[in-house]
Structure formats: C-alpha cells, structure tokens
C-alpha cells in the first residue's frame, strides 16, 4: 500500500518535471542590448587630466597686477 502511494508520488513528480521542461525554455535577450553592453564593457575607460582652472585665475591676477604696475610707472614718468 505504502509502495503504491510512493509510486503515485514519484509519478506526480515526474509529471511535474515534464511540465518544467516544457515551461522553462531559454529566451533570447535583445541583440541590441547584448551588443551595446559588449561595447560598453570593451571600451577602456580613458582618463583625461583637465588643467586646473585655478591656474588660469592666478595668471589673470598676475597679468592684471603687472598691467597696473606698468600703468603706474608710465604715469609717474609722465608726471616727472
């Protein structure tokens, strides 16, 4: 009797296995997605070293100061 019940259980499980193999079929991912991801992964990240904007600021201040000094020096010369 117990063997009979076990046999029914095994048969049910086998039936379930058949269902699983019918339902779980591989799907194909979107080729556009596959290709774009491949492209993203294959691109080596390039590091660009940007020049600091602080240098430009300092240069502008220096140029301004020098121009100011030059103007002052010329003014003094004219006064004499």
């Amino acid at each position: 009797m117990a063997d009979g019940i076990d046999q029914i259980n095994i048969n049910n499980l086998w039936g379930l296995e058949d269902k699983l193999s019918k339902v779980l079929r591989p799907v194909t991912p979107d080729p556009v997605f596959v290709d774009s991801l491949k492209l993203k992964l294959s691109r080596t990240p390039t590091v660009l070293l940007e020049q600091s904007k602080r240098h430009f600021g300092l240069a502008a201040i220096l140029v301004g100061l020098l121009a100011g000094l030059l103007c002052y020096w010329i003014y003094r010369k004219i006064q004499k």
């Binding site: 591989p26 991801l37 491949k38 992964l41």
Partner: peptide, 10 residues
C-alpha cells in the same frame, strides 16, 4: 561575455 551573457540573462 559572449559565452555567458545569454545564460546569465535567462
């Protein structure tokens, strides 16, 4: 990537 992308996606 090519060898594995489909199975991982699935």
């Amino acid at each position: 990537y090519e060898q594995n992308v489909k199975r991982i996606y699935n």
